[in-house]
Design a protein around this nucleic acid. Structure first.
Lengths: 402, 402
DNA sequence: TTAATAGTTGGTTGCTTTAACCAACTTATT
DNA sequence: AATAAGTTGGTTAAAGCAACCAACTATTAA
């Protein structure tokens, strides 16, 4: 155990209560509907303890009771469920082109979202404007109080101080986004800022189908670049400078294509959407002007329409993805790899080649079976992740670790 | 928080006591000498609570009181210190050529060690023999009771079931080492088995100078191959199949040298001791028979004696190390990289080139300053790590995580 | 067919236990 | 006298425990 650097958490009755409250709340979230007795069995807590904590959760309107019948002998259990429609959070995802804002319930479902153009050149004013849009949106939805605002940014973020360390695609560096937000929302407003890929991983963990099955996975976000969120034992791996999971800049080919990071042969240069588009443009013999007009969705659409060249291009993307994923597996040894991005629409095309390469490049028996699949999230994971940043805190997931 | 998969730890008075006991014990370990009041201030616990727990620790003979004077006004504090010479653990490090055994105190210092040849072809008998040697050693040292036995193995290990999944260099696969150990030591004997690089990381964390400073680091073990132990927030990152940190097999050069793992261009093939020896043999125009006789220590000695070729060879190793370390940094974003192995003897030769490459290949400002240094452990980290596996448990490092 | 009753599961109540907290106290020192 | 270190004895929060009530099904006897 390391000391000194951070806070030392010692135990007392209140901490115990918080831990147990958190454990119970998360069980309800994870397995609803569930009865008190079931919870007692799962946690090892006494029935009476569970009852007492459940009563508090009902009073806080985080859960509610529901009649139920099981048909077996004995009294029917009272089902406990998450209460929706009571607590809301604001979520903002800032990407280079567009920024999406929304109001989400505590199950990660969105009441509504809007999309605005990102104004990178005036960060303070732009972020202030985001707050205005959010409050307008919540007014429209008759949500009079937000538990907090979560922001995911396409760049490296220091969540503690709520500063954007560096966001090359936005042109931001050392931008104190937390300060602007607090100025607009009041200093007591709960604000959480983090990197978009990390937020996506969190979204998968909290709201995804897979996050409930796996607690050790890597979320790969394929877009302009390649970002990753690493989840280990249900916790996000932040990295000491909040820059873990920069797999996009791991070298695949020494001396290969020049990357924006200054090095050559980075994974991004071969498997990102930009790389896919470039290969497509090249094979289609498009001139530079024309190729700049192409979006990844165009290539996807073309592939889905049956165009051989596009399919070829995506198969190649699959191969490159596989090369990088093999490295991820060797480094982290996750239980699963979850992929997000537009290219998941052509999963059936990239999948085969990707698996093949991963299988060939990984080491041992079990590890070769690492499951790789597209995200199950219906919405932009980056936005849901922004919501998760705050909701996670509402559920205050305390843990006791052995 | 993820559920279902493992045990759900709920809180109660006993858990709180254990947490606080662990916190206090670790503070004493980390900062001795230290007084009760100091501990109370650090933890936020009440003085009386600290006193009560300290009394229990004294009764368990894990710590002792020592008179001290601070010269200031007021009563002098009573210094608390770890008590040595009372609790011992057995440690075994099994490597392809030789196996080292030792008896260690709870501060990780060894009473004595012995070295025997590893007999890979008869694993059961060999491990049984290790136990005999250990008990002979503890008899000689008049240690009548061992708190447990820790074993570090050059291969992938499943610590839960104490099985060696696969150890290519030993030729072991699916070997139930725990069973053999329990047969020889009794089923109630505490046994911990883990991978050698992971154990080394643990040794650095628990006994190294650096482990007290850093709680986010990667320990790179350079030997026949390259292994890694990843420490995140003071905890070892195991990986889902207990195979995290296989950076040695990350591809540096696509289509490069053939590696024993079946792939090409693995980091190991360029930066491991084997690779260094091969380059040395090549430059010295040695024939195959002669080059097989060379050990890394020979090359080290030659370099230390001022041989230009050897120095050249190590500088090149440094460059290759740098290439791989840059990848490690991008993946994990640690605060420090700690390197173990024979090559640390020529640190002054490899260091320069290594840093240069890392600096060139990593991404952003702060991250470029990741400190890289050789291990501070006086003994083989793998052996101290084996001891740490058990000692860690003695200190039962419970934590409450927010 | 009905009504009494045994058995079973879910949940609550009131008392006990544990261990942290608190405030007043003793001890030792300048 | 002032002050810091550590102890004591009582208080409090929360979990554990055991007995109980509640609600339901299955069985059986009139």
């Amino acid at each position: 155990m390391k000391l000194g650097s951070h806070k030392i958490i010692s135990g007392n009755a209140r901490v115990v209560r918080n831990v147990n409250r958190s454990v119970i709340l998360n069980i309800i979230r994870d397995m609803e509907p569930v009865s008190r007795v079931q919870i007692a069995k799962l946690t090892g807590l006494n029935k009476s303890t569970v009852s007492s904590i459940v009563a508090a959760l009902v009073a806080d309107e985080l859960i509610y009771e529901e009649e139920s019948r099981h048909g077996n002998v004995g009294r029917n259990p009272i089902s406990l469920r998450l209460k929706l429609g009571k607590h809301f959070v604001g979520a903002v995802n800032i990407d280079s082109a567009r920024t999406i804002l929304g109001i989400a319930d505590i199950d990660g479902s969105f009441r509504d979202t809007i999309s605005i153009a990102t104004k990178c050149d005036e960060p303070e004013r732009f972020v202030a404007n985001c707050v205005t849009e959010l409050s307008r949106l919540s007014d429209r939805l008759r949500v009079e109080h937000l538990e907090g605002i979560g922001v995911s940014v396409a760049g490296i973020v220091e969540p503690g101080s709520a500063k954007v360390t560096i966001a090359p695609n936005l042109g931001w560096e050392g931008f104190d986004i937390g300060k602007v937000l607090h100025e607009r929302c009041g200093s007591d407003c709960v604000i959480h800022v983090d990197n978009d890929s990390k937020a996506s991983a969190l979204a998968e963990l909290w709201f995804g189908k897979h996050g409930r099955t796996y607690s050790n996975f890597v979320f790969l976000s394929i877009g302009r670049g390649i970002g990753a969120g690493i989840v280990v034992e249900g916790k996000l791996l932040t990295g000491h400078y909040h820059a873990s999971g920069e797999f996009g800049h791991i070298t695949l080919f020494d001396g290969g294509n020049l990357c924006s990071c200054g090095n050559r042969g980075c994974w991004e240069e071969y498997a990102s959407d930009r790389a896919t588009i470039a290969r497509y443009a090249n094979l289609k013999h498009l001139n530079e002007a024309a190729s700049r007009q192409i979006s990844i969705q165009d290539v996807v659409d073309s592939a889905l329409a049956g165009d051989e060249v596009s399919r070829e291009v995506f198969a190649e993307t699959g191969r490159f993805l596989g090369l990088g994923i093999a490295n991820v597996i060797k480094a982290i040894d996750p239980e699963a790899i979850i992929i997000g991005g537009k290219i998941t629409q052509v999963w059936h095309i990239i999948h085969q080649k990707m698996i093949e390469v991963v299988h060939q490049r990984t080491l041992f028996g079990k590890q070769k079976d690492v499951t790789i699949f597209p995200t199950s999230l219906p919405l932009r994971p980056e936005l849901q992740g922004a919501a998760a940043l705050v909701i996670k805190d509402l559920f205050s997931d305390y843990k006791i670790i052995l």
